[in-house]
Structures are given as C-alpha cells and as structure tokens.
C-alpha cells in the first residue's frame, strides 16, 4: 500500500513541476499582461497544488499540512490574480486584442476612482 502511495506521489511531483514550467513559459511567451495573467495563474496553481499534494503522498504524516497549503493556494491564487487584473485595468493598461471586444471599458469609465471612494 505504502509503495503505491509513493508512486502516486512521484507521479504528482513530476506532473506538478511540468505545469509549473508551462506556467512560467506562458508568462514568458504571451503577448500582453492579461494573457500572461491567464497562463501564470492557471498553470502555476495546478502545478503547485499537485506538487505539494505529491509531497503529502510520499510522507503521509505531512498530509494534513500539505492539504492546508493546497487549499490556501486554491483560494488565494485566483484572488490575487483578480486583484492584479483589475488594478492593471484601472491603471489604463489596455488589453491586447485582435478584434475589439471590451465590455468592461464603458463601466470602468463611469466607476468612481478609488481615491474618491475612500
């Protein structure tokens, strides 16, 4: 039984590090900020989750703490990327588009600026 857990853990670690690499490759290759955000958030979230879960599988006593890190990453990572995306838009960073499709533009203009809201 322990042997199988170990093999699952090793598989998860390799899979996770591969996705971490793909996430960073996305950060490197994508043409603009928003697409980098996409690649960076998704791939690195799954990569880190699966790698840390793999560590938990190899050392079963560490499972609880690695599960905490996994849950934390799953909750915190989309939050931080959402905050970054909105702040970049408010900071007048226009998304790169092949054909103009920007439903947020009209809203961002009428919204009160943050400094007025505070």
């Amino acid at each position: 039984m322990m042997e199988y857990l170990k093999y699952i853990g090793q598989g998860l670690i390799v899979f996770g590090s591969l996705f971490l690499f793909l996430g960073a490759l996305g950060i490197f290759r994508m043409p603009d900020f928003y697409n980098r955000l996409q690649a960076g958030t998704k791939a690195s979230t799954l990569g880190a989750m699966s790698l840390i879960l793999g560590v938990g599988f190899i050392q079963p006593e560490w499972m609880i703490k690695s599960l905490i890190i996994v849950v934390f990453i799953a909750v915190a990572n989309p939050l931080s990327s959402h905050a970054l995306g909105r702040s970049a838009y408010k900071n007048n960073l226009k998304p790169f588009m092949k054909k103009k499709m920007d439903a947020y533009e009209k809203v961002a203009e009428i919204l009160p600026k943050e400094e007025d809201r505070l």
């Binding site: 590090s17 950060i27 690195s44 880190a48």
Partner: peptide
C-alpha cells in the same frame, strides 16, 4: 513584473 513575481512566489512555495 508583479505577475511574474506572483508566479515565481508560487513556484518557490512548491
């Protein structure tokens, strides 16, 4: 730069 830093910090956590 911040999005790169964010991704790097997750990679370092792992």
């Amino acid at each position: 730069r911040v999005v790169a830093l964010d991704t790097m910090s997750i990679i370092i956590t792992a």
